[in-house]
């Protein structure tokens, strides 16, 4: 058992990060996927994770969304421990209730959209606000329509996902996640399952979010140009560790590490 006394019960002070991974370890059996990861994301910051396949990028987001349990360390969200909860002056593993409480500030969009196929676009967006947040149907509808407008899908609000293109489905999925008013949004390769000609309509929505909303965002993408444009910081993952991180211009313009250079030139060749 890990000694939890080194971890604060909560984060306080002037510069509390919106997200903090502290010493986080994740393994599948003998395979260590993330090794003592430390990563902070400041409120309102847009951080993009890049790196080769299998380097643990998706795992970082899935742990933060509580889709995967962690094996060591603590994740904090908005100053509160997410994976743990204080009990008797110590941190103990979080129970379902605590997870639900802290998870409320996190939203996620998936590579495969994961819209509910038996609901229309509007119903997809209203589901969380009505069922989970307890909004009235009228309030939830107003909020959802506003967001569908934002992502340019208001015309298709009564369509089921099976009648929408991939790009359209992903835009609805973004609206659905935003309808929960999260403080942190996670995007895991949200354009990877899309045809090239519709990638732009999804990235445009994310650009708009960055420009007009004060969301904290953590994104995984293989689109280097897009990442460079909109990110405050780029983290290059390699073998379950952050090999190098920095502002986009520095990381793309003058990377310091060999592995970063190799990765970036390999990606460039692929395009």
């Amino acid at each position: 058992m890990e000694d939890m006394s080194n971890y604060p019960l909560e984060l306080t002070g002037p510069d509390v990060p919106m997200v903090r991974f502290m010493n986080v370890t994740k393994s599948y059996g003998a395979l260590v996927v993330l090794d003592k990861l430390d990563l902070d994301v400041a409120p309102g910051e847009m951080v993009t994770i890049i790196g080769p396949s299998g380097s643990g990028k998706t795992t970082v987001l899935r742990m933060l969304m509580t889709l995967e349990p962690i094996n060591g360390g603590v994740i904090y969200v908005d100053g509160q421990p997410l994976t743990h909860m204080p009990r008797g002056g110590r941190l103990v593993p979080a129970d379902a209730r605590h997870l639900r409480k802290v998870r409320a500030s996190i939203g996620m969009c998936f590579q495969q959209f994961n819209l509910f196929p038996h609901m229309t676009a509007l119903q997809n967006c209203m589901e969380g606000p009505v069922q989970v947040l307890g909004l009235s149907r009228a309030e939830a509808r107003a909020r959802s329509e506003e967001l569908l407008e934002l992502v340019g899908m208001i015309d298709k609000k009564d369509q089921h996902p099976s009648r929408l293109s991939g790009g359209q489905q992903q835009r609805v999925a973004i609206a659905r996640a935003l309808a929960m008013r999260p403080k942190v949004m996670l995007f895991d390769e949200v354009t990877s399952a899309l045809d090239p000609e519709v990638i732009g309509e999804v990235t445009a929505v994310i650009r708009k979010l960055v420009a007009e909303h004060n969301l904290t965002m953590l994104m995984v993408t293989h689109q280097m140009g897009f990442a460079r444009d909109i990110s405050d910081r780029i983290c290059f993952f390699f073998g379950g560790r952050i090999e190098e991180q920095g502002p986009p211009d520095v990381l793309f313009g003058s990377p310091r590490r060999d592995r970063t250079r190799q990765f970036l030139s390999a990606v460039k060749e692929a395009i």
Partner: peptide, 27 residues
């Protein structure tokens, strides 16, 4: 029912009951 549907329910912070009644059983 694909795994992604369960994960979407967690991401929307739904309870187990809501997950089954609203999303999983209808599919």
């Amino acid at each position: 029912v694909p795994r992604g549907q369960w994960e979407a329910c967690i991401a929307l912070n739904m309870t187990a009951r809501q997950t089954y009644l609203r999303v999983i059983l209808p599919q």
